[in-house]
Design a protein around this nucleic acid. Structure first.
Lengths: 195, 195
DNA sequence: GTCTATACGCCGATAGAC
DNA sequence: GTCTATCGGCGTATAGAC
């Protein structure tokens, strides 16, 4: 079962996706050519088509993998208190996004470059993630530990606020990621608390 | 002083910028060609270069105009209470951004397509706007009406949260813009309040 | 001020040799 | 599985006629 010398599909495939992710994040899907991706990998442009049907599939696969990992990694414990669940969500979201800046950037910036079918599939996954947070907020509203007028709006507000961290946080700066987590948790906690 | 027939620089110029804004917002700077902009305006591609030095200048001018308007339109009253000033900021930011969806989208999504000189100028304007909010938060921390661990982080968190409204709000939906303003104001007010 | 024509180069994707 | 070569098309920007 040994592979033929020069047969590298198992290693080149991931390298193609890694190169595409790096370049799409840095300069944008539309601005990056297949030739550039090939150069980054160290192959000729034609060889890329052994690993992806076309450029669009490359983008879609990156986004889908990112959102699959997001949904799979987040664990919620419905038996804990709403406040504990919310704190876990806040810290998880900040850390997970901080660990994958390129994938996050692509997932937020390149939605309009998806075909409409692919867009619908990605939006469904994003919606499923939002639903996880909304369930926490609803549980807190029900038992009186939170007070928000509209759980859907609060969900979107919290996610927008947390995701914004990626736009400015740099390791080695004035604050550690743990400091940032703690500060955002305080703001989120108060924002949804009963007044 | 009558112009020659067929001389339309005073009207075609704005139409070029309007067409570019519409197309850049819908499909992205890199994905839009000068030919498409010309088609939208109703002239040939070469004629665009009577109104802009190049495609990059078109992008920069759109962003600069947007941020100039933002800075010029926001009025803060340093003699009011920090809470009143913050509520005014929240409502202003949501309304101003809601009124200019295309300009807002471009200003957030196309930063990486600016040359480094142009990027620095735009970032300086964005920083000036952030400073206006931070001044309000600092005043509230000083007089004890707010409690935030770090005014810079709180500034970025509030702006990210408010700007997120543009990504989902549509007139004619379940909530009016005034409802949305009110809900965000409640969340912001509580987030920065002393616990 | 706008037109037509064009310079010059890169685009995504495929064909066929090895 | 990767290469070279290539197809047909579109990219920005400019030149020169009117």
């Amino acid at each position: 079962m040994a592979r033929t010398a020069g047969s590298h599909s198992d290693i080149t495939g991931p390298r193609v996706r890694a190169a595409a992710q790096k370049l799409f994040a840095a300069r944008g899907f539309a601005a990056v050519s297949m030739r550039e991706i090939a150069r980054e990998v160290g192959v000729q442009a034609g060889a890329l088509y052994n690993y992806t049907a076309d450029k669009q599939s490359l983008l879609f696969d990156l986004m889908q993998s990112h959102l699959e990992a997001l949904l799979q990694t987040f664990e919620d414990d419905p038996t804990a208190t709403p406040e504990a669940r919310l704190e876990h969500f806040v810290r998880f979201h900040i850390r997970f996004h901080h660990d994958r800046p390129d994938a996050v950037f692509i997932a937020y910036m390149e939605l309009r470059n998806l075909t409409s079918d692919n867009f619908a599939r990605i939006e469904a996954m994003r919606g499923a993630y939002e639903d996880r947070l909304e369930a926490i907020l609803r549980a807190g509203v029900t038992d009186g530990s939170f007070d928000v007028a509209d759980t859907k709006i609060a969900t979107l507000a919290v996610i927008a606020m947390l995701t914004g961290v990626s736009t400015w946080f740099r390791s080695g700066g004035r604050l550690s990621l743990q400091d940032v987590e703690a500060e955002y948790w305080q703001m989120v906690r108060k924002a949804v608390a009963p007044s």
